[in-house]
Nucleic acid binder design. Sequence first.
DNA 1: CGCAAATCGAACATCGTTGTACGGATTAGC
DNA 2: GCTAATCCGTACAACGATGTTCGATTTGCG
Lengths: 220, 220
Amino acid sequence: MTAQRGAPRLRADAARNVEAILDAALTLFAESTHPSMERIAKAAGVGRVTLYSHFASRELLLTAALDRALSQAGEAIRGAEPERGTADAALGRLIAVAWDALHRHRRVFELAERQLDTRARWERHATTLAPITEVIERGRRDGEFRRDLPASWLVTTFYALLHAAAESVRSGDLPPAGVADLITATLQPAFATTTGTFAGAGTTAATEPHGRTRASSGRR
Amino acid sequence: MTAQRGAPRLRADAARNVEAILDAALTLFAESTHPSMERIAKAAGVGRVTLYSHFASRELLLTAALDRALSQAGEAIRGAEPERGTADAALGRLIAVAWDALHRHRRVFELAERQLDTRARWERHATTLAPITEVIERGRRDGEFRRDLPASWLVTTFYALLHAAAESVRSGDLPPAGVADLITATLQPAFATTTGTFAGAGTTAATEPHGRTRASSGRR
DNA sequence: CGCAAATCGAACATCGTTGTACGGATTAGC
DNA sequence: GCTAATCCGTACAACGATGTTCGATTTGCG
């Protein structure tokens, strides 16, 4: 990664600064939608001119930051092995391992989605976050998760709770300790196939594989 | 309400414009954190100067908009009669009646909370939204809602889902039709006391036939 | 050691936004 | 129909943020 183009590979000094700038940009973009370039530079311990020497425009910086955010989130997601075990367990691992990474960059994702309209970049975004959707859809296919609500709504619920929890931690309403458990404890009953009263074989039924109902899965 | 100060009560023409300005401000503040005064003026069908003649500064306009938002949200909440019936039923009504009002002004609330630090205003905010917290706490006291998670977390979950649903509607992922049912169907199992073994006499109460899930209708 | 790379601050032009000031045109209300 | 309230557009000053340029200084690397 970080494969430089034919460019005469930059000096150790410079590389370190680029790193610092991207870190600072990610944190600042996350908490305010419009931090000044000077703020970012200062937060990175770098002069404003230096920042411009590495990222010629605000937009360039934003795309670079987005790339880094996608990189981190993708790594966290992959680390949760979303394909292994039952969907329920996978979702639990996903929450435990990736919840903060997924949240930390949420604002950047939104911001990028609004300001950058490079199709390629949006595609990469979608690809990186796809495993989450897939886990949920797998859970529905296997009868673990409920099917009386649209799949896209379950995905939305997942993200919403993740985000809300992280926000509560940031504002001090929640201790960072048991957050993952909290989310899991809330999502499990919300996602589970309705237990009716008796957990008989009931629900399963059919498992009709013929998917007339495509569940849209739009997400634009 | 709307009792004017000793001010020489403004003309019908002017009053109408103030109204339009506040409406425009609310919608624009809701979708962008920093709309220019000119945008707001134009959206209200009013000259920029006229806007300034009514609200001398951006901050003044924001506080006025916040007041109106609180007013609307409070009315919607009160309309749901949060004190009546079981907590479960009350929450359902709250969602059905107040979900869009609660969401429409969310950004304004956040924005005001960040930029205005008038204690009085914050207090009014808290008072207006308090009934929601109270319904949830009542549900916990009565054994309808689970107590293994912090009450504040349930409140957070409520808001998060409300917001997520409204956002999905805005982006076109969800049809505006069955949204309230969708939220209710998701929150009910998430909030309900863990059916653990099975619902013995325990909670019941049975005072009200709030029975069965109203989710069914959802569909598509 | 020495050179090229990279840093820095200061200064500049440009742009968008805020808030104010003026004068002429409507328009509500008595 | 008359008057004062209210509207409108234009113009102006002040501010902050974006990029750019310059010359001087530091610093990595061979």
